[in-house]
């Protein structure tokens, strides 16, 4: 019986992938348009959508402590509502950033012959975990308010940092030639 379930599961996996193949949009996802779009997203990131001070402010408990001790109930309520909206928006922005990075990575890595399958799988898992964590954090903030999960914000930030590090490792080889030029250039400069 276990054997039957095992082989039927393989069949189900194959069938599901065929189903998605049949329903798949014929528009090539990795077109130049998509690459430009991803690049624009990266430029937007680079411009600094989320400065560190902002994050500190959104989740800083001292703001809430101050409002709670000084302001009347109506103001406290309004503060909490507004802060919740801002926190949710922040998580959404982080999610968008991660998605842009993933999209960029997929679009670029597939064309590179020295792609490392182990790193790719690690990266795919990290991205998947991170996206789920973002969704969960959104839910927690939505239900419990902006100060409900300070540790989760930290954990998510750490995971994002880890994913970024792996992504950087995975893409590092792409720039090997450029790094060689840079290092020889700097040597030349130092010599002069």
């Amino acid at each position: 019986m276990i054997q039957l379930i095992f082989f039927l599961s393989i069949g189900a996996l194959l069938f599901a992938s065929l189903f998605f193949l049949a329903r798949r949009n014929s528009r090539p996802e990795g077109s130049s348009g998509a690459l430009i779009e991803a690049r624009q997203a990266l430029v937007a990131l680079q411009a600094g959508l989320l400065p560190a001070e902002l994050v500190h402010r959104i989740f800083a408990n001292e703001d809430w402590e101050f409002v709670r001790s000084e302001a009347p109930a109506k103001v406290r309520e309004l503060f909490m509502e507004e802060r919740k909206k801002v926190a949710l928006l922040w998580v959404e922005q982080v999610r968008t950033q991660i998605r842009s990075l993933r999209r960029f990575h997929r679009g670029s890595a597939r064309s590179y012959a020295r792609l490392n399958p182990r790193l790719e799988m690690e990266l795919a898992l990290s991205f998947a975990w991170l996206m789920s964590a973002c969704r969960l954090l959104q839910l927690v903030v939505y239900v419990g308010g902006p100060y409900a999960a300070p540790r989760m914000v930290g954990a998510m930030a750490n995971a994002a940092s880890r994913a970024c590090k792996i992504s950087e490792q995975s893409l590092a080889f792409l720039n090997a030639a450029q790094l060689g030029i840079l290092s020889s250039g700097s040597t030349g400069q130092a010599a002069s």
Binding site: L45, Q46, G48, L50, P51, A52, V55, H56, F59, A60, Q97, L101, V153, G154, A157, N158, A160, S161, C164, K165, S167, E168
Partner: peptide, 14 residues
């Protein structure tokens, strides 16, 4: 990536 890492590091410590 460097930018995000710095920023996220700060966020984690916040």
């Amino acid at each position: 990536i460097g930018h995000i890492r710095t920023y996220l590091g700060k966020a984690a410590r916040a």
